[in-house]
Design a protein around this nucleic acid. Sequence first.
DNA 1: TTTTCGTCAACTGCCTACAGCATACAGTCT
DNA 2: AGACTGTATGCTGTAGGCAGTTGACGAAAA
Lengths: 248, 248
Amino acid sequence: MSRSDLAGKAAAPKIARPVPLRESVFEALLELIISSHLRPGQHLAESELAEMLGVSRQPIREALQLLSGEGWVDLHPGHGAFVHAPTAEEADQLLAVRALLETEAARLAARHHTEEGVALLRALCSRGLAAVEADDVEGAVAINSELHATVMELSGNMVLSDLAAQVSRRVRWYHTPVARQRGRASWEEHAALIAAIADGDEDQAGEIMKNHTEQTRHLYLSQLGEDEPAEPLPSKRRKRRAPAALGN
Amino acid sequence: MSRSDLAGKAAAPKIARPVPLRESVFEALLELIISSHLRPGQHLAESELAEMLGVSRQPIREALQLLSGEGWVDLHPGHGAFVHAPTAEEADQLLAVRALLETEAARLAARHHTEEGVALLRALCSRGLAAVEADDVEGAVAINSELHATVMELSGNMVLSDLAAQVSRRVRWYHTPVARQRGRASWEEHAALIAAIADGDEDQAGEIMKNHTEQTRHLYLSQLGEDEPAEPLPSKRRKRRAPAALGN
DNA sequence: TTTTCGTCAACTGCCTACAGCATACAGTCT
DNA sequence: AGACTGTATGCTGTAGGCAGTTGACGAAAA
């Protein structure tokens, strides 16, 4: 009797992770991409990567698929993988979508706010402020991410949260040191946001988050405009997958 | 010299598609999942699927990764793949997010509207209406999808468009025959939406799309409430990657 | 010189095979 | 009887290898 006949059993497997090789490869390649050791548009030969990382081609292939799913590389069937070439236009769109998702999350968080949730946010906020005061930029950035992620969690919409996380990861392409520039102001906005959430004031929370994210967006863009020499490819239209047949 | 040294070359390869096996497998498995031949929570043994489809495990693995990326299956490292167990809660969240994305798209489409775009929408709308009049449900559904996809395109935000497409595909889990129920009303809303877009009236377009999608959402949910025996678990908060324990 | 065709190297997609775990079962001990 | 442990089976993760195809380079023809 094969295990798959036990439909519905699906007892939650232990999350003791042997950390499959594919994930290490994923991390390694991601690091190479972010650090620009693998450059945008570059063709990624599986054999080459396999040799470079000392593994076989199989884990490489799977890691590439994961990377493709998050938008780091483009997979062209029969032609291999290419490092995704980010454009200023795409960055703008990415940040706009992120703003949209986060704004909605803030509204929902305000609607469903709980004691513990607000307490958690407040704790993060003061930790973040402390980090800023101590000039601990790395720490502040980390806490900032955590705070935003927490707001997403508190929205109660897991789908929204997952999507936002995905988008946020992609923004890492443009890892300009924006956080350094916002400093205190950003954390004051956070405090105001938390207050609005605690009051259950949806509109206020949404408005604050909107301004907050839009401001980050403008900062990113001005930063990009400087050091990005603009993309060589003029934003080619991607092939479309079959549309989802569903009714409205 | 290896080909990958030619960074920046990245000439978009011809999209002459030999249709890799992995994609056929993807389609086949998706069909099996949607048709409930593979049931939610079921463990998918690679060897079994491989034998069933007459291919080796490799394309199966890759197809499973693709399916995982779109939320159809859950991958648990070291434990294999499980058919994702959708819940009413998730459906609600999915539809809420879709409404959010489509509403924003409608606003943007109104802002950036063009002659051709509006003409395209009008054509689709009348075709859709004709299909409804002719009781061609399948056709109407297809045209409806195309119309919504077109609005997404016209928003000019490719990231937003892709994300919405992804979400819309996931909604196919809940492929209740909603379209049959909305009928004419839906297409009248479409017409109003197009008029607002043509006028460049963002707020109006956004409002119409919001109502439009929210209505669909309510219809879906009421439908789900009926024929879905409702998930056994009373909307348990999802753990990190723990599978939805189904049918205990 | 420019164009076309043939040859060739390299790469992708796929298959087979093996090692390491995880789960299930049976036998043993308390 | 119940709990525990050893064993066996099946599955995943990975390696290695082969066939088909793509793209590039160079030679021959216009």
